[in-house]
Write a protein that binds this DNA or RNA. Structure first.
Lengths: 237, 237
DNA sequence: TAGGATTTGTGCGTATGTATT
DNA sequence: TAATACATACGCACAAATCCT
């Protein structure tokens, strides 16, 4: 939470700060697969965990519902959403188009500190490659995304890109172990290395094209797996 | 409301139907300039108008805040947002890029009924040109947008496009009277006529390019006005 | 600086919706 | 089909924040 939050809650009213903290915590749990698609999120349990009444929890869940991460059913429960194959295809198609805009709509130049953080992520990736674990990989992937997102100068594009990442990355992560975690880590390492190289040369437009290519490839791998394994006997557990 | 709603609230729980109705009502009032930027929206007054308690009203206002149409300030009030010039420029830049995607990401073919509705809008525009009124023009503009949006087959693109339209169209509408309402109606009529023509010929990709061009031109007119008149003495009333 | 008026935020009891026995 | 259990939705009273005198 320390790295991922990076001081977005400065200077807010206590109520707002609390909302942002609870919201980010639950959202990240969903995106990092700590809460799985289909899982029920009890208002009462969350209220107890965060030491508030159900009221602010309900506000957070409403926001997550607007972002399609949670489905609220009156009298039944609040459920982490899944994304069906058609929606997944559409979101990936759009993410590919938006990726090239990263470098075309006022990209923000990268400082030495920015590049150093990326190099640190690369080293973390190398360590993970020796002992692959899905949860650690999920976090690494999200932190790399945040670095890329911080390069987007166009604010509405940055927000849309984030929303679509949060919506679909967990579905991809869910399929990674079956695709072979070690392979996916190696592929991801290449994306980071290629991105770092073009950032160092100052070619920010190339960053978007690299991103587009890797989004396209990972969608292909995931959807090919879904077609081969997922349609006949949907693994629910 | 009858035309604009077009049965999106079928088969919902009563609470959900009520939420959607109040939400759409307030959102449209903001986008049609019935509530002006800076205006305060009292929870108590809205609760009385819709004959509910403050609780569901607060839910609607929270959603509107997530979409940046409302700013909620603890202990102060809920205010209709304005959009500053830099944000406006960024949103318009992104809307231009998204416009061309309309025709490239699975556009939905237009039926004879779809084209007939557009022709009816054209005739309404001609009637309005004889006696120009800003509120009627605002409604016409929104209905044309909804027809265009209904052509977008890619669901996330459709939702993003709608969100950005709702966010900025009111800012443009606000400047229209100063730019000359009659001129803007004439320009808008040309966009509708051009769009209808390429739709009739089945060239759905051209629809996106026409849209992009008109977004670009209207941004130029609006921002030129803002630079000439709006920066020195910001007209608040 | 202090206090009171106003407005949003929270906690909690109850109403409403859903599923199961 | 009716009744019961349980979860979300709502209304209201009070707390917290802000503004103005």
């Amino acid at each position: 939470m320390s790295v991922l939050d990076s001081g977005r809650t400065a200077g807010l009213t206590p109520a707002r700060e609390r909302f942002e903290r609870i919201y980010a915590t639950i959202r990240d749990r969903i995106c990092l697969l700590e809460y799985l698609p289909g899982e029920r999120l009890s208002e009462e349990e969350l209220a107890e965990e965060f030491a508030v009444s159900r009221t602010p929890i309900r506000g957070v869940l409403s926001r997550l519902e607007a972002e399609e991460l949670v489905e609220i059913r009156h009298g039944v429960g609040n459920f982490v959403t899944d994304v069906d194959e058609d929606d997944l295809r559409q979101v990936y198609r759009l993410r590919m188009e938006l990726a090239v805009l990263i470098g075309r709509l006022d990209p923000l130049p990268r400082s030495a500190e920015d590049l150093a953080r990326l190099e640190a992520l690369l080293r973390r990736c190398d360590r993970q490659a020796r002992d692959p674990e899905a949860p650690a990989f999920a976090r690494l992937n999200m932190e790399f995304f945040l670095e890329l997102n911080a390069m987007i100068g166009n604010r509405p594009l940055r927000e849309v890109t984030a929303r679509l990442y949060y919506l679909t990355s967990r579905i991809w992560l869910k399929s990674v172990p079956r695709l072979n975690l070690g392979d996916e880590i190696a592929i991801f390492r290449r994306e980071m290395a290629e991105t770092l190289a073009v950032m160092q040369s100052g070619d920010l437009e190339a960053v978007g094209h690299i991103r587009r290519h890797h989004i396209s490839m990972s969608a292909k791998r995931m959807l090919a797996y879904d077609q081969a394994e997922g349609s006949g006997a949907p693994a629910k557990g």
